[in-house]
């Protein structure tokens, strides 16, 4: 996502001036702030099948060498991944718990 934002920002500098209602910049709303519950993958139970990523509407789950990673900057906390996970390896935890932790 950040690559896209950067690429477009760079592109914007090189493009000729456009006349009319034309957009180039990428929408980058940090929708993670909407979340009141946070999906947390229990790595030990995760089989990396990728179904959570397939069904995540926001595309914030990525398969990496270190397992499935959720981008909490954008995760809205809809909970679809927690329901669809065939191993039930994703916990859905109240955001307030993390805030307490941070404090």
């Amino acid at each position: 996502m950040q690559k896209l934002v950067q690429q477009r920002t760079k592109m914007l500098e090189t493009l000729p001036e456009i006349i009319g209602p034309v957009s180039v910049k990428v929408s980058d709303v940090h929708t993670g702030a909407w979340r009141y519950r946070r999906p947390v993958i229990r790595d030990e139970d995760c089989v990396r099948c990728g179904i959570c990523a397939t069904y995540c509407p926001c595309g914030v789950i990525e398969k990496t060498d270190d397992g499935m990673v959720i981008d909490y900057t954008y995760c809205k906390g809809c909970g679809i991944c927690t329901v669809e996970c065939p191993k039930k390896a994703i916990d859905f935890i109240e955001e307030s718990n993390f805030r307490k932790e941070a404090e």
Partner: peptide
């Protein structure tokens, strides 16, 4: 001379203003 639809430069046209 103005923006055109071309995958090389992904413009979004006639956006909500």
């Amino acid at each position: 001379v103005n923006a055109t639809l071309d995958p090389e430069v992904p413009y979004a046209m006639n956006n909500l203003t």
